[in-house]
Computed example of a mutant assay.
Amino acid sequence: MNFNRLDLNLLVALDALLEEQSITRAGERLHLSQSAMSGALARLRDYFGDELLVSVRRKMVPTPLAELLRPRIRAILLDIQATLETRLDFDPASAKRHFRIIASDYVLAVLGIPAVTKLSKLAPGITCEFLSQYAQPTDLLERGEADFLIMPHPYLSPDHPSRQLFEDDYVCVVWKDNELVGDSLTEAEYLALGHITTRFGNTRRMPSFEEWFVSNGGRARRLEVVTYDFNSAIQLVIGTQRVVTAHRRLADRQARFLPIRLVPLPLPMPRLAEHLQWHQYQDRDPANRWMRDLLASCAERPDG
């Protein structure tokens, strides 16, 4: 289909080219040959009167015009996708849909497990893919490569709708035979222990909220173990005299299966609020709305 002398299929090609910044990878993404992608790029260059991608040190780099076009082209394609997926009614029992959700392993444990259990009963044709958190999680939402983000509000995008799912607080978790910790801890005793914490990302690793809060309060802890997910942080206290500051919901769940004890946190740490965010183009989509309500119901009743 042509619109204003432009084959609209070229918008899909342009989106892939700007995302991959490689003719070969863009072709693989769209299942097109390298010559076909080269031809598409040539037609796009002719239409816009701009090179769009130029070779710099063996890399394809977007021109200023291409950088300006990139978010606009992605927004157009997402709007088209949302329009094509619009239905007047939605029957979860017969629906076929795949949702991609960015969430931490903590959220996956306390919310994802009851959610997929409920999905199997109410909507067996709806599938889920959970994606791990990384440094800029809103990028996948913006590109339409994720349907939902579940994380604290400061990490969300201001450009898309969201809703709060649940709140949680923090507790100290120790091995059940930890001889240094009784039924309670003073702040001095807490800070004197060896600590386990969680950080995210491969290179510029982001600290967890508890690490950020404690360090910004001017308190010094002895970090002895750093891991990449919340579940392993709790498990790593077993057989040691260390402590981990963990989300209460996750700690309660782990305490059913592991030899650990929960002790009140001696610091006045703010409660954590987990929010759900989705793309503005999906705001009125019945399937997306139904999934949001299901996640919210599981957040209220995490075990059923």
Rank of each mutant, 00 (worst) to 15 (best):
E51P: 04
T240R: 06
L65S: 10
N288P: 00
K121R: 14
A40H: 14
K176N: 08
A246T: 09
A192I: 01
F130V: 02
R199L: 12
L193V: 08
D183N: 11
S94L: 06
R205D: 04
I23K: 08
D46M: 08
L8Y: 07
R143E: 12
A115W: 11
L6C: 09
S55F: 04
S297A: 15
D293K: 11
L180A: 07
T240L: 06
S184W: 03
D7L: 12
V173N: 08
A109F: 12
P259T: 06
V173M: 15
A220Y: 10
E179Y: 02
Y134K: 12
P71V: 05
S33T: 13
I76N: 09
R289I: 11
C128E: 06
M291F: 15
R249D: 06
T86H: 14
L258R: 12
P158R: 13
Q254I: 06
M1A: 13
L185I: 04
Q241M: 01
L262R: 00
I260P: 02
R301P: 00
K121G: 06
G201Y: 09
L14A: 11
D147T: 15
E274P: 00
L53P: 02
L18E: 06
D177G: 02
R143H: 05
S104D: 13
V226F: 04
A192C: 04
P158K: 11
G304C: 09
